[in-house]
Amino acid sequence: MDWWLIVTALVAGVYGALVGALLPRARYRLAVEPGEPWRGAAPCGHALGGWAGRARCGVCGGRYGPGALWPAAATAAVCAGTAAAVGPRPELAVWLLAAPVGVLLAGVDRAVRRLPDVLTLPLAAGAAALLGAAAALPGAAGSWPGALLGGAALGGAYLLLFLAHPAGMGFGDVKLALGLGLILGWYGWGVLILGGLAGLLLASAYGMTLLLTRRAGRGATMALGPFLVAGAWAGVLAGGWAVRP
C-alpha cells in the first residue's frame, strides 16, 4: 500500500467518523412503525431541530436515542476500508456518499424492521446518476451500463423473492436491493453475484445462530437490511481490489 493510498484511507476514515457522528438524530426520527409520521420531538416533548446531530435534546439535554460512537465507528471503518480497496478513483466519491446512507438504513431496519423510502429510493437514484458522472471521468474502473443492469437484476431478483414469500421479506428490501445492485453492478456480474449472495448468507447464518441458541423460534422475522448492506460492502471491497493495478 503506497503512501497516497494510506492518505486516502485516513482521510476517508476521518470523513466517515464525522458524518457517522451526525446520524443518531436521523435514526431516531426515522425509526417509526409503518404509517406513523417521522418523529418531530424528543420524548421530553421538545422539538427536534433538523435531521443531523446527536440524539440528545438541545433544550433539556436529555438523551433520546443511541449515542454517536457506534455509527461514527461503523461509518469510519466502512469508508476507510473502501478507500483502501478502491483507491483514489472517481467511483470512490460515490461509495463514500453511499456509506452513511447504508449505515443509517441498517440502524433503522434493526430498530423497527423498516427501510424508509426516503432513504432507499434516493440511494438508488443517486447511485445511478453519480455513477454515470463517474464513468465519464478518467480513471474510472467500472461500467455505468453494468451498474444499471445490476440494479435491475438484483432488484428484480428480490422482487421475485418477495412475491414468492412476502412474509419473509419486506418490499423495502426490494427497493434497497435496487440501489445495492447498481453499486455492485458497477464492477461486473461476478461482484454482483458475490455481494448479493453474501448478504443472504450472512442473514441465513445469523438466523441459524438465533435458532440454535433458542433466541428465536421458527417463523420469527428479522431485519434483513443490515445483512444486505454488509454483503454489498463485501462485494465493493472485492471489486475494488480486483481492478487495482
Rank of each mutant, 00 (worst) to 15 (best):
G190L: 09
A177V: 13
P226V: 04
P145E: 06
A216I: 01
I193H: 03
G225R: 11
L121I: 14
G168Q: 05
G217L: 11
H165S: 14
A127V: 06
L224D: 01
M208K: 06
A134R: 02
G132E: 00
A135F: 04
G126I: 01
F162I: 00
G181Q: 10
L224G: 01
F171Q: 08
G185M: 07
A134D: 08
L130E: 06
R218P: 04
A198F: 02
A147Q: 06
L192I: 15
L184V: 07
L154I: 00
G240E: 06
L197M: 12
G185E: 11
T221F: 09
A152V: 15
L176G: 03
L161W: 05
W233I: 10
G190K: 02
G240Y: 12
L137S: 10
G196D: 03
H165P: 00
G150T: 04
A135G: 07
V236Q: 12
Y187L: 08
G196A: 01
L210I: 09
A230T: 12
A164L: 14
S143K: 03
K175H: 08
G126M: 02
V191W: 05
L184C: 10
L137C: 02
L130H: 00
V174Y: 08
G196M: 11
L224F: 14
L212I: 11
V229E: 00
G190N: 04
V118M: 02
A153W: 08
L176T: 05
A164R: 09
G190Q: 09
G235N: 13
G156R: 11
G207A: 13
A164T: 10
A234V: 15
L137N: 02
G181M: 05
G231F: 09
L178K: 04
G217K: 15
A203V: 07
L154H: 09
L194E: 03
P166V: 04
T209Q: 10
M208C: 13
L237M: 05
L119T: 02
R215A: 11
G168R: 14
G195N: 05
M222Y: 10
L161F: 15
